[in-house]
């Protein structure tokens, strides 16, 4: 058993030495309790629905989410809008389809099977509309940033007056969590910017939390089933390991050498 202890300590050493390397920038992110962390972590359904509202009313005017479909909004483990609600959401967007039998492209209301409609036709158009900066696609944004959800959550609340020794160009803003502190996105949230249907007070903090939760789901849509399956798998493995351990002891008791 001593061996195994050694083995685990080596594993832990490797992991810690590795994860240290990603924490190079030393900024303390704002901490909050995420419902989806931990062994049994699940998304807060209401927060996901509010987060979708923030995304679609605020972020979506610049940021695409090209890997998501409207049907995802009704799927288990997500915001779990009813199918009728998801259909209504989809139908509120104009989708370009075609070509039809005349060879013409046409627009129609969105369907569940459609991907989220993108705010710009292409990267160049997005850059042209945003002073040269490309608002990144948000589908996997949380996984594409070192600090993950904590980083996004902090960034949304990290806008401040620039210190006097920092000069900012036009269209550049100061954010204490942004790498290099300069960001091309103006503070996207302000208190009361959206009106939540469930009566939740739409503070910047609340909206940041909701939209970050939504982004976590969009990056890991199967997070809940992953956690559930993981728990079962590990419990199963532990039970099996214990059983095999005792059979091993029994088998090895036939020879005098100790295992």
């Amino acid at each position: 058993m001593k061996n195994l202890f050694k083995l685990f300590s080596i594993i832990i050493l490797i992991i810690t030495s590795n994860s240290n390397s990603f924490a190079a920038e030393k900024v303390e992110y704002i901490k909050t309790d995420w419902s989806f962390k931990g062994l049994f972590g699940k998304f807060d359904r209401a927060s996901l629905q509010r987060g979708y509202q923030v995304y679609t009313e605020v972020c979506a005017s610049c940021h695409s989410m090209k890997y998501l479909s409207y049907r995802n909004l009704a799927e288990p483990g997500g915001p779990e809008f009813s199918e009728a609600q998801a259909k209504a959401i989809a139908a509120s967007f104009e989708v370009t389809d075609g070509p039809n039998s005349d060879g013409e492209m046409f627009t129609r209301p969105g369907k569940l099977s459609d991907k989220f409609v993108m705010p710009y036709d292409n990267v160049k158009a997005a850059q042209a509309a945003n002073g040269g900066a490309y608002p990144p696609d948000m589908s996997v944004l949380v996984k594409a940033r070192g600090g993950g959800v904590d980083y996004i959550y902090s960034l949304l609340q990290g806008y401040e007056e620039a210190p006097s020794n920092v000069s900012l160009d036009d269209g550049v803003y100061y954010n204490k969590y942004m790498y290099g502190n300069k960001i091309r996105m103006a503070a996207p949230l302000s208190d009361g910017l959206v009106e939540y249907g469930d009566g939740t007070n739409a503070t910047v903090e609340q909206m940041s939390k909701d939209v970050t939760t939504f982004l976590m789901w969009s990056a890991e849509p199967h997070l809940e089933s992953r956690h559930q399956m993981g728990f079962k798998a590990i419990v199963y493995l532990i039970i099996l390991t214990v059983l095999v351990y005792f059979s091993m002891k029994r088998i090895w008791s036939r020879v005098e050498s100790e295992v």
């Binding site: 994860s19 070192g146 992953r226 956690h227 993981g230 798998a233 493995l237 390991t241 091993m248």
Partner: peptide, 29 residues
């Protein structure tokens, strides 16, 4: 049986990464 026991221990570590920290060993970029 001894290899099997060790393999199961190893699989527990493996499963932990797959189910609870699947991206920790990768790079966000």
């Amino acid at each position: 049986i001894k290899d099997g026991f060790a393999l199961l221990m190893f699989m527990i570590v493996f499963a932990f990464f797959v189910f609870y920290a699947p991206n920790i060993l990768g790079h966000a970029d």
